[in-house]
């Protein structure tokens, strides 16, 4: 289904960021993407802060996927 395709994509993206497979993304992981993605370090920080909704410094798969859902479908779709 569409839903599982999105989930699959989300998982792939999460793994690109979580290189070591820790199960969460840190600010440092995000900074490492600086060489691989066109975003500046500042923009990547911004992305991290936006996705890290509880601001604990760890980006879980749930936080990441809800951010991705907002990007795909607009805010308020996933509760």
């Amino acid at each position: 289904s569409d839903c599982s395709a999105v989930l699959e994509k989300t998982r792939e993206f999460f793994q690109i960021c979580d290189i070591e497979g820790k199960g969460f993304i840190t600010r440092r992981d995000m900074q490492r993407l600086n060489g691989e993605l066109p975003q500046s370090a500042e923009e990547l920080e911004n992305v991290f802060d936006t996705l890290d909704t509880d601001a604990n410094g760890y980006l879980t798969f749930e936080e990441f996927s809800s951010g991705f859902s907002e990007f795909m479908f607009g805010p308020g779709v996933v509760s």
């Binding site: 690109i16 993605l37 975003q39 923009e43 911004n46 992305v47 936006t50 996705l51 951010g67 907002e70």
Partner: peptide
Amino acid sequence: DPNMKGAAANEGVLANFFNSLLSKKTGVP
């Protein structure tokens, strides 16, 4: 409303980020 502006700016940054991941994944710039 500055808060709305901030949210919109963040949305743009998020969109760029996820678009970049999409490009990276598919290899299409």
